[in-house]
Design a protein around this nucleic acid. Structure first.
Lengths: 230, 230
DNA sequence: CGCTCGTTTCGCCACGCAGCGAAACATCCG
DNA sequence: CGGATGTTTCGCTGCGTGGCGAAACGAGCG
């Protein structure tokens, strides 16, 4: 068939048009944390009526940026996949007016946050770098894979052996962190790691932002795993 | 003052709107190789009249995506900086309709190409990774820096000592390659390296695309510098 | 079964803006 | 100076689309 050419002007324009409306941008931004929200709530967030919101959601859906999940009389919308989330992060974060990143950005958010459903920010980048260096994490043709020594280390700091071993079977995606411009671990592996850290109380979700707040205990554990902030 | 919050909906929408027009998208895409072109040529590329093109260029200029350089009765437009180029790469490349990247993309382009003015693609990523691993390249707080051993190696494969040493003073920017999702060297250092490789005949620009074609000699030199393609 | 609530569809209006031609500038050249 | 060329400004028209209210649809619930 016709080979896929470079990004032609129409693909790029179509994508841009989907972002070009403040109402749609607001919806996408609020879904960037991986949540799934019903149409009505998204309408409220975007500040438009239900009818208008429905039209916007239809466009985003047709454009492949959203996926929908029906549940009773609600329809929950979420980002189509973490590929989309990565694009949005790339677009959204560095778009601070001019200055590179005036250090005014919320420091907690720079430190640790969710990107889609996995850990990002300085902490996420530091973890990825440290584990890659130790060989606990390896980049294969198949994506990022956790190695046995990492499992041992996790068990040593208190994780259940069975749960830790399950991580060996999960595939990670290298995901670019756009405040740090460096890799962190996304994909199923990244999500599983992050979930476990939340469960263990190492991290806590901030109430009104995507920031993740590390507990004192969490920081100690991270340090035991070779992960330090600055 | 008001701290810079996260990307608000308006910033994102404004950016999207700039891309949302096929004529503007075409202009941006053709400038993605770092070239500077006069308004008339961009009008031709975009397939619109001179008047229309002028209006589009004004919008892109006001939006901070382009810079202009007056020269006689011509006005040469180019991308504002490599930050913008990186955003565009991020938007444009992975925007193949659905399938991840159906391997139908131009193989030469995946192998090596210019990103703005520096080397990207498999070759660029491989070089960056190999040199980081050998310590020839180091990530400092200030960006990427070349180290002395790299200069020695470059001289050994035939570069002028003086030119090679100058590279030590140039700052590199980690630039994300969106076909590979991995780092390669951008910024002044990346540009200087790439220029030198073009001068030395290791690489040649393809006539009708952003692909860079490595010569047989070039591939041999790259191999001597620890850079191999698969 | 009939009411409620969440969502989508329909019909309508209004604004934004892309497009062009004509004209105004500006620069180079003879 | 005067004509040619490159670029921008101006005025205008037409289309796309965002917004809303009203109505339709469908799922829960008493």
């Amino acid at each position: 068939m016709s080979r896929v050419e470079l990004p032609n002007r129409y693909q790029l324009a179509e994508f841009g048009a989907l972002l070009a409306e403040p109402a749609r941008a607001a919806m996408l931004l609020v879904l960037l944390d991986g949540s799934a929200r019903p149409a009505g709530e998204l309408a409220r967030v975007a500040g438009v009526g239900a009818a208008t919101a429905s039209a916007h959601l239809k466009r985003l859906l047709d454009g492949g940026l959203l996926a929908v999940q029906e549940q009773g009389r609600h329809r929950y919308y979420r980002l189509a996949d973490d590929e989309v989330a990565a694009w949005l992060e790339a677009m959204a974060l560095p778009r601070a007016p001019k200055a590179q990143r005036p250090a005014g950005s919320d420091p907690a958010l720079c430190r640790a946050r969710t990107c889609y459903r996995h850990l990002a920010g300085e902490l996420g980048v530091a973890m990825c770098a440290a584990w890659l260096e130790r060989g606990w994490l390896q980049s294969t043709g198949d994506g990022l894979r956790l190695r046995a020594p990492a499992v041992e280390a996790l068990v040593e700091v208190g994780w259940q052996a069975q749960a830790a071993e399950r991580l060996l079977r999960l595939r990670g995606r290298g995901c670019i962190d756009w405040t740090e411009r460096r890799l962190h671990v996304g994909g199923p592996l990244g999500v599983a790691l992050t979930d476990a850290m939340l469960d263990a109380g190492w991290l806590r979700r901030a109430s009104r932002s995507r920031a993740l707040l590390p507990s004192a205990d969490g920081l100690r554990r991270f340090a035991q795993l070779g992960v330090r902030l600055d």
